[in-house]
Nucleic acid binder design. Structure first.
Lengths: 301, 301
DNA sequence: TGACTCTATGGAAGTGCTTCCATGAAAGTA
DNA sequence: TACTTTCATGGAAGCACTTCCATAGAGTCA
């Protein structure tokens, strides 16, 4: 049996309250006493029980993340940022994987349950109104990343503006025939970033007085390969685009590959703009996420 | 304040012990009573406190994973497998990211600490003897995945044999000049899979009576790009190899790219064999990991 | 030097569960 | 009908902390 706070107290010849104070860096302990307690802890190899601490504090000291485990760099980047922020605050990070819409629902129910977490971060999945009601009922703070719901805090790069900027960039370069390669606008998980970027793309075209050509608009599975196929189709058009805005880096790479396969070169023959998932994610995860976490911590106090 | 087990007991007009039994599916409860308790739980919106449960049981009901968060597909695949297995047992999965050797050490100390987890899974990082002593001192079960230590359980695909098989395959195809593109054999994290695959490669060559040419052996950073550079160097050799065994899929892709850049084709001009991270990982994560988890659970009881 | 404040410290009461042990009633046996 | 068994159930004692409250001794000020 591992030693408890009582063992330490006895050994250091102090009360348990004092040991607890030492453990929590309370200033209300004389230096000599603190040293004695610390020595006792060391000698006994004592480790405080996290569970007991949590019961007593009535906090879980953990935050949960629900996310689809994709290999996408953006996923890993965000997770990395979250992990860093969480670790810093000596919280634990509990992750849940969601791979199917069914599992999604189960997860939304189970993860916040049993007061297991003080806060929840949901990545790339948009909860329904019902889900949100449920969260509120449990009064658990929820933050959305790369997803949206009117009633919840969220951390998203402004994808609409991002899409608009990317497209404007191409327009400034003199392009008039700009295609868009992105994900399905609607999908069972409720991803929205690609849709937003498309909206930004559309806005930019309209503002510039350019046509929004349906044949330049490709939406499909988020993959290297699919983007490649789309690009080939675009190049086969009687009037192929002179530039492509790809909704993610993964897709941009696919476009580039297709272009190269044709013996063409970018950007001489055709320009490609990607959406820098990785940069964006680093920003997202490391700096912006910071605040919601902090906030979640505060709210849970 | 959320309702406690006492509130439920009172409402259902039973003792707290009975409520606890209902919560834990004990058979020692009359059906009618169980129904009453369940109703009370429902009406009160009661959620048992996980922390209290854990303190009482003196288990944490959580398992930790220490891993380097790389974008590598293998990482995500393994994590996915672990998550699935953990979720199934209603344990929590606490992840820790390790990105530098320093953080590695800190993590090895902190993660198992404070009885926060019942078991630890370490991915792709080989602990030192000292680390292992520490784990044993804490009497925390540790399982290694894609890493190794004589005193610890581990789950690894046999990389030596895998490397040997891949190389034999190339030999059977008639190749005699086979190069190896892999990671640094030694690295600060203690990754070993590439080294093992190299050993398999070497064994296969020796068994076949082929030369182990130092100029055919490339080791460097694990990246698409580095592999591409290596391949170009290999192709520039006065006597270039006719086949390449790449230690991972990522690297194999780099090789293929370099080959294509030269206007060559695979497998006509030069064969490339990768190491199917993803397949391997799926196997690893989903089926093999299963057992150690179960075991870890058992041992922690 | 006495009254008063301040500080380090201990005791004890929570925190919300699990579970051992005791109990009374129903059921089974002779 | 008397006497075990069995079984559902409640009470209370943990589990390992935190923290409020009380206290004794040491300072402080007049």
């Amino acid at each position: 049996m591992s030693p408890t706070i009582y063992d330490v107290a006895e050994r250091a010849d102090v009360g348990i309250a004092t040991v607890s104070r030492v453990l929590n860096d309370s200033p209300r302990v004389r230096e000599t006493t603190r040293a004695r307690v610390l020595a006792a802890i060391e000698e006994l190899g004592y480790r405080p029980s996290a569970s007991a601490r949590r019961t007593s504090l009535r906090k879980t000291l953990a935050i949960g993340v629900i996310a689809p485990f994709f290999t996408r760099p953006s996923f890993v980047e965000r997770l990395r940022g979250i992990e860093a922020a969480v670790a810093e605050r000596e919280f634990d990070l509990i992750v849940h994987n969601v791979e199917s819409p069914e599992k999604r629902d189960a997860c939304f129910r189970k993860a916040p349950r049993r007061q297991r977490v003080d806060g929840l971060i949901i990545m790339s999945l948009s909860p329904t109104d019902e889900d949100v009601r449920y969260f509120q009922e449990l009064s658990i703070p929820v933050v959305l990343v790369d997803a949206r719901h009117p009633a919840l805090n969220r951390v998203v790069v402004d994808d609409v503006t991002g899409g608009e900027l990317a497209t404007q960039h191409l327009i400034k370069l003199g392009h008039e025939r700009i295609a868009f390669v992105g994900d399905h606008l609607e999908n069972p998980f409720g991803f929205i970033s690609s849709r937003d970027r498309f909206n930004g793309y559309r806005t930019a075209l309209i503002k510039a007085g350019l046509d929004l050509r349906p044949d330049y608009h490709c939406q499909g599975e988020h993959s290297h390969f699919q983007a490649q196929v789309f690009t080939e189709e675009l190049l086969d058009l009687p009037e192929p685009p002179t530039a492509i805005f790809a909704s993610s880096d993964t897709q941009a790479l696919g476009c580039l590959e297709a272009i190269r396969k044709r013996g063409l070169h970018s950007p001489e023959d055709i320009s490609v703009v990607g959406y820098d998932d990785i940069e964006v994610a680093a920003y997202l995860g490391l700096s912006t996420i910071h605040q919601p976490l902090y906030e979640a911590g505060l709210r849970s106090v």
